[in-house]
């Protein structure tokens, strides 16, 4: 450890009270949403690591009691209507630029629906 035991956050992580431990099924559900897949071995490792990460994030959850209805970025910067972009056409880029990082077909992006 490069962080001494006096560190508050580290301490919070260690004694952090958890809502619930994350399950493998939940990780799989998240992976599906995130369009990622894990091998069984990766999943084991990941679930364990993720559990700790969530415990870490949970210090935030534990720090505020109750609901968050009042949230609205009150001091967030705002722009007025007049500062929005005027509706004026800017020339688009040539098709060969748009497709410059892939092999296209007749100006289209193209994906084989399956490939061996």
């Amino acid at each position: 450890m490069f962080v001494s035991s006096g560190d508050l956050t580290a301490a919070a992580v260690r004694k952090g009270v958890r809502i619930m431990a994350i399950s493998k099924t939940e990780i799989e559900k998240l992976a599906k949403l995130a369009k990622l897949s894990f091998t069984d071995e990766e999943l084991e490792r990941f679930t364990a690591e993720f559990d700790e990460i969530i415990a870490f994030a949970d210090t935030v959850n534990q720090s505020i009691e109750g609901g968050t209805e009042q949230i609205r970025s009150v001091d967030a910067r705002m722009v007025s209507f007049d500062d929005l972009r005027p509706d004026e056409v800017v020339p688009s880029l040539p098709n060969d630029k748009i497709l410059s990082n892939v092999e296209g077909y007749n100006g289209f992006f193209k994906v084989e629906r399956s490939k061996k």
Binding site: I27, L30, A31, L33, A34, L36, F46, E49, F50, I53, I54, A57
Partner: peptide, 8 residues
């Protein structure tokens, strides 16, 4: 890991 945490 970070994508997963963010998704969560």
């Amino acid at each position: 890991r970070r994508i997963m945490l963010g998704t969560y």
